[in-house]
Computed example of a mutant assay.
Amino acid sequence: MKRQFSLAHLTVLGCPPPEMTYIAAMTGYDYVSIRPIYMGLPGEPNYDLAANKEMLKQTKRALADTGVKLHDIELARIYEGVDPKRYLPAMEIAAQLGGKAVLSSIWTPDRDFYIEKFAELCDLAKQFGLTVDLEYVPIASVNTLAGAVDVLHAVNRENAGLMIDTHHFHRAGDCVTQLQSLPREWFHFAHICDAPGEIPTEKDEMTRILREARSYVGEGGIDVASIINNMPEMVYSIELPNIENAKTFGYAEHARRCIESAKNYLDAHPRG
């Protein structure tokens, strides 16, 4: 079975979804993973397709022109006071464009609240045929595999999934043997990238690498193969923000290097 890859939003942060789709097609990706949920972060472009009808039209055209498909949308964060219904317009767009999944993460320490709201998010997504895949992030409230597993067991929703990012898995100090015991149906896609092997002790440095200085697969210190090979085969979404490389090579060449390095690495580290 041919491996399938998606080009993730952060890898080509400055590209709106139509341009991103053409870059994905040009460089050999099967899917795109876009961010139509505007988060309001400093310097973040607004790709809210529900509010920008012209950009939505151009995105539909790009998908039709290229044959690239939409895989997932991000980022349906659970944070203090959030109403998951605010994500409905983006989920409607995802379904309209043929998407499969909604990426989520949790940014409040209030367990009762985030369990309730994550379950609600899953229920809202179900009507669109979408999974909701929980990503644990080192700088978020749910920041370990154990924490994410706790959420999935608690909500007990058929369309809830676990999204492993190789960077975050390494930074959390998680063990690959833990992956083997988890339900296979939880795994829908993974984020792959590399990064320096030394885990930063300062949050600012952790955040800097996470958001703008990840490495091509095989060029860092993460044992990516062990993580990937202890999960089922699935779509690999390459989330590899690297501001310096994007400026040096341009977004298209950066995206090409991302997928080429990932393919070469995975070919060299086959499943046992």
Rank of each mutant, 00 (worst) to 15 (best):
residue 83 D to V: 04
residue 36 P to V: 05
residue 34 I to V: 10
residue 134 L to Y: 07
residue 221 G to I: 00
residue 20 M to I: 06
residue 60 K to M: 13
residue 56 L to E: 03
residue 175 C to L: 14
residue 233 E to G: 10
residue 250 G to N: 11
residue 228 I to S: 11
residue 42 P to N: 07
residue 74 E to M: 04
residue 56 L to Y: 03
residue 48 D to L: 04
residue 87 Y to S: 01
residue 97 L to F: 05
residue 19 E to A: 13
residue 148 A to T: 12
residue 55 M to W: 05
residue 28 G to E: 03
residue 95 A to T: 04
residue 210 L to I: 06
residue 42 P to R: 08
residue 81 G to L: 04
residue 163 M to W: 06
residue 29 Y to I: 07
residue 19 E to N: 03
residue 66 T to Q: 00
residue 201 T to W: 12
residue 203 K to L: 14
residue 245 N to Q: 15
residue 75 L to C: 14
residue 199 I to W: 12
residue 42 P to V: 01
residue 102 V to T: 06
residue 86 R to L: 13
residue 230 N to I: 10
residue 56 L to D: 02
residue 139 I to D: 12
residue 127 Q to I: 08
residue 84 P to R: 09
residue 97 L to I: 08
residue 243 I to L: 14
residue 106 I to E: 00
residue 203 K to Y: 11
residue 113 F to E: 04
residue 64 A to K: 13
residue 102 V to Y: 00
residue 110 D to L: 01
residue 94 A to K: 05
residue 81 G to Y: 01
residue 180 Q to C: 14
residue 115 I to G: 03
residue 132 V to R: 02
residue 261 S to W: 00
residue 70 L to K: 06
residue 196 P to H: 12
residue 60 K to L: 10
residue 154 A to Y: 07
residue 112 D to S: 13
residue 165 D to R: 10
residue 191 H to P: 04
residue 212 E to D: 15
residue 194 D to G: 05
residue 76 A to I: 08
residue 78 I to M: 00
residue 165 D to T: 11
residue 259 I to D: 01
residue 251 Y to T: 10
residue 270 P to E: 06
residue 72 D to N: 14
residue 27 T to L: 00
residue 183 P to L: 02
residue 243 I to G: 12
residue 176 V to T: 15
residue 147 G to E: 11
residue 238 I to S: 07
residue 58 Q to F: 08
residue 181 S to T: 15
residue 91 M to N: 03
residue 263 K to V: 12
residue 204 D to I: 12
residue 64 A to G: 03
residue 15 C to Q: 15
residue 73 I to H: 02
residue 23 I to S: 06
residue 175 C to M: 14
residue 251 Y to P: 10
residue 237 S to F: 01
residue 41 L to Y: 15
residue 70 L to D: 01
residue 86 R to C: 12
residue 129 G to D: 02
residue 190 A to M: 15
residue 120 E to S: 02
residue 241 P to E: 08
residue 262 A to W: 00
residue 94 A to H: 03
residue 168 H to P: 09
residue 140 A to E: 09
